[in-house]
Simulated assay, not measured.
Amino acid sequence: MAMKKRFIFLPIILIVAAIFIFIVMSMARMPPPQETTERVPVLVEYHLAEPAEVQFTVPGQGNVIARHATQITAEVTGRIAWVSPKFVAGGFFAEGEPLLRIDAFDYETAHEEAKANLARAQASLAEERARGQVAEAEWRSIEAGEIPDLGLRRPQIASELANLQSAQARLAKAERDLERTEIKAPFAGVLQARNVNLGQYISVNTNVGTLFGTDVAEVRIPLSDFDLALVNVPTGRDSDFVGPDVRLQANIGGRSQEWVGTLVRTEGVVDPDRRVTFAVVQVQDPYNRIEQQHPEPLTFGRFVRAEVKGIKVADLIELPRYAVNSNQQVWVITDENILEQRTVEVYRRNQNSAYISAGLNRGDKVMLTQLENPLNGMKVRTPDDLENTDADSAADEG
């Protein structure tokens, strides 16, 4: 029985002894040497600050309109007897070219009647003057003293003179009415709308159509106060001053077309709703009616984008827009490759760039890489470090 108990406890004793020996050996074993790894600084890109003179352009947009646009109205009453074949929307007319004619029969009759009345008045005046001369001669022959006005027929002569002037005025009106039966283009232009047709009876002040002048096109461009500070705007005090050039652009049929205009004036008031001042750009001969000076006609009503040639400003540093945060701060890499946050003065921003006027020096390295959590004093690497490392390795191998 005792032998059986020893056989039962023997495996347990062996297991406990093995565990004890393993623990002792583990404690006696020397720990492996710890290797320290140096953290490699992050690699970043930078932009070298170089002050330079910058030619600014001011963007804008607007619709093309005619400098002269008028609603043509009838000045006499009558039936339309003739219309020009070009009297349709889109028809071009030269200055003074007839658009339509009103039946002139009644006005020709009135003109002839006015001429007859004038001749009658002239004859009556001549007759009264002759009678006055006869009366004066008879009065002097009898030596009856001072001749009264009535004896010389002066009141009758004055009445006939008034009748003559009235007849002349009626003839002038008849001639003017007869001339107005032919409605002409007041200036060279394109007909935008036609409101009457052949045979239609029209009265005075009937709107027969709308004409847009084709000599000059205009584009109203909204400019902020800061935009105006970058543009040499004509003030009107110097008649010889020529405004800046403006490049206009639009897409026509999937192709980009450009025109060149001139900023000629501002409208002189600030729009109360948009808080901007509208500048006016003019383009000469937009429809190429005088000569072929545009690659494509600049049609009225077209929406265009504009770039106004602005002033030149010296000693500005151009940076990518994303390199400057909303607090007007940039990250500068020192000579020791340490990050340093610096506040700068932004002269102007556009869609792609920010122009710095103060806060940076020539040769400063402005970090372009957008790190998630950059910190002052943070160590970084630049592509220059990689080039230097490669050069050192090549020298060692040599």
Rank of each mutant, 00 (worst) to 15 (best):
V134M: 05
A135Y: 01
E136R: 11
A137P: 04
W139M: 06
W139L: 15
E143S: 14
E143F: 08
E143D: 14
E143K: 13
E146Y: 10
D149I: 10
D149S: 09
L150H: 00
L150T: 06
L152Q: 07
L152N: 04
R153N: 08
R153Q: 09
P155R: 13
I157M: 09
A158M: 15
S159Q: 08
E160C: 03
N163M: 01
L164T: 05
L164F: 08
Q165K: 15
S166A: 15
S166N: 14
Q168C: 10
Q168G: 03
Q168Y: 00
A169V: 02
R170G: 04
L171S: 12
L171G: 12
A172D: 04
A172L: 04
K173G: 04
K173S: 11
E175P: 09
R176N: 13
E179Q: 12
E179A: 15
R180H: 11
R180G: 00
T181S: 12
T181G: 12
E182G: 03
K184T: 04
A185M: 01
A185E: 02
P186R: 07
A188M: 03
A188G: 15
G189F: 04
L191T: 12
Q192S: 15
Q192V: 05
Q192L: 05
Q192P: 04
A193L: 14
A193N: 15
R194L: 07
R194G: 06
N195M: 10
V196F: 00
V196R: 00
L198N: 05
L198V: 14
Y201G: 01
I202M: 01
S203A: 06
S203H: 02
N205P: 00
T206R: 03
T206H: 00
N207D: 09
N207V: 15
V208K: 02
G209Y: 01
G209M: 04
T210Q: 13
T210M: 01
L211I: 08
L211W: 03
F212R: 11
T214S: 13
T214Q: 03
D215Q: 14
V216T: 07
V216I: 10
A217I: 07
E218W: 14
E218M: 09
R220V: 08
R220E: 06
R220F: 13
R220W: 08
I221M: 06
I221Q: 00
P222D: 09
P222M: 08
L223Y: 00
L223C: 13
F226D: 13
F226L: 15
D227T: 07
L228P: 12
L228C: 08
A229R: 14
V231S: 00
V231L: 01
V233S: 02
P234H: 14
P234V: 12
T235L: 07
G236W: 03
R237D: 14
F241H: 06
V242G: 10
V242E: 09
V242M: 09
P244A: 09
P244E: 05
D245F: 06
V246T: 03
L248Q: 11
Q249S: 13
Q249K: 13
A250W: 10
N251W: 04
I252E: 09
G253K: 12
G253F: 05
G253T: 03
G254W: 02
G254L: 06
G254F: 01
Q257N: 11
Q257W: 10
W259P: 03
V260L: 15
V260K: 08
G261A: 10
T262L: 10
T262Q: 06
T262F: 04
T262W: 05
V264K: 11
V264I: 15
